[in-house]
């Protein structure tokens, strides 16, 4: 049984981008809808970003995207576009590209799973959302998150090697949240930069194999994101989500999302942790035995490898 897994935001861009018509189309969509140049990882001015997209989605969706992009792009996409938001768009673009390639190769998913921001291209894989809408939602929600950085500096912290209980104690000591439970020994903390710096030192002292942090636009996957509820609900109200054509297993409770549940999930997932190990185990229990990581990098496969090793024990 095939499972397509959609990873979250990559931390960096690969050395080279795909060089073919499919990726060019997706890059054009990103440029048109988000005013972001994937080749150079650079935000464009309003004039530069008006190149014609090659949208696959409905005419209505593309029109809405253009209007939103024009109105908000100047404010968010060009003047306030952040490195993180650019990487989110890059990650979604690569996922959409790899999804196209898999489809061209005749590979179809029996199940779809997602990790964090991977939900947007995952919705495309299920037929719930068009490519243009997935790109536009990524940009609009990412821009809303990025505005949180105006008043506070935030960070994410990778902690490898400690157990969940140890990581939770460190999070509690430092007013942070555990944002990703990826395996029994791979975690992501989220919170303010100042608190994160102290937590990383504490994690190293506690015996973490590695602990490092990087600045982020918002306290992703933590309750303080609930401040944005009104804005996010308003964004999501602009989109229609079709019934998934195959089961879409969510990373919160490992249930299969129905169309009517998707907007609520998209809001909730921003303020709740990602439970990848539980998700992988649920996918295995559901019968998935061929896993395709549809996006940048191979972190999910590596987490799965770790979990498999523990299952085999």
């Amino acid at each position: 049984m095939n499972c397509f897994m959609f990873p979250g935001q990559p931390l960096a861009r690969c050395a080279s981008l795909p060089d073919d018509a499919d990726f060019a189309q997706i890059a054009q969509l990103v440029q048109k809808l988000a005013r972001f140049d994937l080749q150079n990882l650079a935000w464009l001015s309003a004039e530069e970003g008006t190149g014609e997209g090659n949208g696959e989605g409905t005419e209505e969706g593309t029109e809405e995207g253009t209007e939103e992009g024009t109105e908000e792009g100047t404010e968010e996409g060009t003047e306030e576009g952040t490195e993180n938001l650019g990487l989110q768009l890059y990650g979604v673009a690569l996922s959409l590209y790899r999804l196209r390639r898999l489809r061209l190769d005749g590979v179809q998913p029996d199940l779809v799973a997602e990790h964090s921001m991977g939900i947007y291209p995952a919705l495309v894989a299920c037929g719930s959302l068009s490519e243009p809408d997935a790109i536009e939602i990524t940009w609009r929600i990412g821009a809303a998150l990025a505005r949180m950085a105006k008043t506070q500096q935030y960070a994410l912290g990778c902690v490898l090697g400690l157990r969940a209980e140890q990581v939770q104690i460190i999070a509690d000591h430092n007013r942070l949240h555990v944002a990703n439970h990826n395996t029994s020994r791979h975690f992501l903390l989220s919170g303010t930069s100042a608190d994160m710096a102290a937590a990383v030192l504490e994690a190293v002292d506690a015996g973490a194999f590695t602990a490092r942090f990087f600045h982020y636009d918002a306290p992703l996957h933590t309750p303080p994101i609930e401040r944005l509820e009104g804005e996010i609900v308003g964004i999501l109200a602009d989109y229609r989500f079709a019934e998934p054509l195959c089961p879409l297993i969510n990373h919160l409770d490992q249930g299969s999302l129905r169309a009517r549940e998707i907007p609520k999930f998209l809001l909730r997932e921003l303020s709740r942790p990602v439970y990848w190990e539980k998700t992988y185990r649920a996918l295995r229990a559901a019968g998935a035995d061929r896993f395709f990581e549809v996006g940048a990098g191979d972190a999910l496969k590596k987490y799965n490898r770790w979990i498999e090793g523990e299952i085999e024990k």
């Binding site: 490898l160 194999f209 590596k302 090793g309």
Partner: peptide
């Protein structure tokens, strides 16, 4: 390889 691989090798 990356840090995830490194931890796997440690084990």
């Amino acid at each position: 390889l990356d840090s995830i691989d490194a931890l796997q090798l440690v084990v």
